[in-house]
Every structure is written in structure tokens, then in C-alpha cells.
Amino acid sequence: MKEEKLNDGKTLSYFTIEVDESCNETARNTTLLKEKHKHLNNFEVLAASSNATPIRSNNGLFYMCCFCTDQYTNPADLKTHTLMKHDTSEARRKFMRNQTSCNYVLKLDITQLKCKICDKSIDTLEGLLDHVQNEHKKFLYTDIKNSIFPLKFGGEKLQCAICHLDFKKYKMLIEHMHSHYRNYECEVCGFGCVNRRTLFTHKLSHKTGSFECSVCNKIFVTQQKVRQHFYAMHKHQSLVVKCAICDERFKSSVIKERHMVAKHGMTPEIYKCLACEKTFTTPNALSSHTRRIHLLDKRYPCKECEMTFFSGVELSYHMAKHTGKKEFQCEICSKWFSRKCGLYLHMHIHANDKRFTCTHCGRAFVHRNSWRAHVRSTHGEMAYKATFVQ
């Protein structure tokens, strides 16, 4: 520790630290190190002493390099690229110049983590920090909040390196990591996060009042909601979801996922039911299937009989049996129907849409039920079972 006498008679104390060679110049030229410089020192030590590599972001298909515009579908390829092309102090300093203390967070790939100095394998980030300090006498600042997310890749799923939970998407994993690094907490609800920027954004949800949209004058109860409304309805014309690769916008995440598969070659997400063998392409479809089939979630009861239904739409269709009310009329033959789907199926008759063909005799039918009845009555029970049961 060094001390200097200031003009007003006060004493200023500061440290000069002998750190890793790549940090010596910064340490000598900086007397009072700011938080950002302390993060840089720790990042420099970790990068120079281990094979841990940073990840800038993931756009849903590619992992982005922190130091250049290269991108890779496999994080292992990004790791190899980083260690081969950007394992220099200048590259790390250039990366840190783009960071701010209020939103700093380093996403560090610690897959197959090893110490470069002694080639020792280490399982955790905390183990690496202890190792380089105690075994190799590297200096790390411990008076700053830890803003490093350790990430491990290797299995088919993305797994948290701390609690080992599995995640379908990289974005969901990063959001989860905030729960392990509660550096800043909301005094209202106890929400914890890693940096000040995330906490500031969260706190907007607690500021209630009367907030008016500057375009349409619609009133919202929070600043956050009026901002979301403005961007969704006025700036982006309801196209609230953006493709991070080509910047095309979509109305929902489901439509964006289809775009990613069709245009960018992304492997479609498959959501498997844990209770049966069925699979689905969206989590909502899986949830609906689980509640309808396995949990028997029928919360819409009929007031006229004992039947219950999964949705209000199903209940409204059923009520037509009790009321006898027919609201849907065929414009061709004037026949009335109680359900819209009944009218839709009826229209196949006028279109002569015989989409169901008997494989035994070649006769075609407009409706499935007519086809099934034909096979059973004309070709027998064995033919019926061979066609519809097996």
C-alpha cells in the first residue's frame, strides 16, 4: 500500500499490484482502480491462466465470438477459434472497452476446464479462482461483485454449471443464471440479478401510475407496459419478435421458430410428452395435450347435463345439442347447422371433395364416417380392423 499527502492535508491510500504480465502496464498507470478495471484484471488472469473462453451472445442458431464477427453453431468450435485467434491481452482489453460497470456480465465457457500453467483439470469456476490464487500466486480482486456466468457444454441439452438444471434454449439458461448471482436485489419483491441494469429494468414494473402513450393516448399503469405497447403496436406494427440473423420480424415466437427452421436451417424443437410417446413442436401444444389427456383438466361444466369440457369452445359446441339453435347456413342449399365445423364438413359435398378412398375397392367418400361405415359393411370386420385399428 502507498500513501500520498493531498493539498488539503488529507491522505490518499492506494495499491500498486504486481499482477499477470499482461496487466502490469494498466496497474502501473492506474492509481485508483475503478470497478471496470478490476473486472479486466480478473478476466485477464482467468484467460491467461486457463482455457476458459468468453461468449458474446447466441442468436438462436449461432454462438458469437466476443472479439470478431465469427459465429459457430457448436460452442466447442467457438472455443477452439477463441484460443487460437484471440488469446492476447489486447483482444481482451478491446472487449472490455465496450463494457460498462452497470451492465457488465461475462459469459464464460468452462467446458473441460484446465489450468494452462500446470495442466490440472478443474471442475468449477470457483475452483479455478482458488487454484490460480493459491497455487500460482495470481492476483484477483475480491472486493467486486462476481459477474461471471460459468457455462458448460457437452451434452445434448444446455445445463446449468451450478445446479445442473437442463434448458432448451441458451436465452433461458442465461436468464436462469441470474438466480445464482443475486448481486443486486429489489427491495420491493426480492428479485435478484447480477447487474444494476437488469435491476433498473425490473424496478420499472413497480412504478405504478397513469402513463400515456404518446401516439394513441392509451393509458397504462406502468412505464414498462407503455413502453412495451409503443414498440409492439407503433414502432414494429405488432411484429414484436425479431430474427437475430436476418432481422425479419414476426407476430409470435412460434412463427419465428418456423422461419428459423425454413430459412436458416435450425433443427426444430421437439417437445416430448413424459406420459406417452406423443411429440409436439411447441411448448403450448405439449401443455395443452398434458392438461387435456393426462390431467383430465375439464373445468367447463355443462349446466344442462353432467358433462364437462376442456375449453369454452368445446362447451359452446356442446350446448347446441341442448338449445337446438342453428346459426350457420349453407349458401348453396340453405341447410342450417348448429356448429361451424358442421357447415365446413357439409361444404365438401358441394365441392365433391372425396378425399377418403377405400383401399379395398377404390370407392371414394366425402366424409370419414361414410368411408368407415362402407369398409365395415362391404368388406367385413377383418378389413375394417386392418384399415383403422392397426
Rank of each mutant, 00 (worst) to 15 (best):
M347H: 01
E3Q: 10
I174C: 07
E4F: 05
Y384C: 03
S101W: 01
T53S: 13
D77N: 14
V261E: 01
A285C: 08
I174V: 13
Y231M: 13
A27Q: 02
H348C: 10
C118I: 06
N98W: 00
H81K: 13
Y271A: 12
L78Q: 04
K5H: 04
R299K: 04
S377P: 09
Y181E: 03
T267V: 15
K169T: 13
K157Q: 14
M96H: 04
T26K: 09
T16H: 08
C302R: 06
L46D: 06
C333M: 01
T208N: 00
N58Q: 02
T16I: 07
E185P: 01
N42C: 03
S252D: 02
E18W: 05
H37Q: 12
M1E: 11
K85L: 11
Q112G: 07
E3A: 13
T387G: 06
H236Q: 11
N217R: 15
H131V: 08
S316E: 10
T323Y: 03
S338P: 10
T11H: 14
E381H: 01
L6C: 10
S13R: 14
H348L: 11
S121F: 06
T73G: 12
M84L: 14
S334G: 08
D143P: 05
C246R: 14
Y184E: 04
Q99W: 09
H318I: 07
Q112I: 00
F15T: 13
K207E: 14
K36L: 13
H346M: 09
H348P: 12
S287Q: 11
L296E: 14
Y271G: 08
N369D: 14
H180C: 10
T31I: 10
F310Y: 15
Q329I: 06
G9F: 01
R28T: 12
D297G: 03
R372S: 08
C273Q: 05
H81S: 07
H236R: 14
E331N: 07
I349R: 01
N51S: 03
E175C: 10
L113P: 00
G324T: 11
D130M: 06
T80F: 10
T378D: 03
T201W: 11
L343T: 03
N59C: 14
R227K: 14
E25I: 01
H86Q: 00
E212N: 11
K137C: 12
C102W: 07
F95E: 09
E135T: 12
E18F: 06
Y170L: 02
I255M: 01
T31E: 08
R182V: 05
T69E: 15
K138I: 10
C330P: 08
H289Q: 00
R368T: 03
F95I: 07
A275E: 13
H176G: 07
I117M: 09
T357I: 08
H136K: 02
I144C: 06
A244K: 15
L204W: 04
A47K: 00
S288H: 07
S334P: 09
H346R: 02
N41C: 02
Y384V: 12
V215M: 09
H180A: 05
N134Q: 03
Q390I: 10
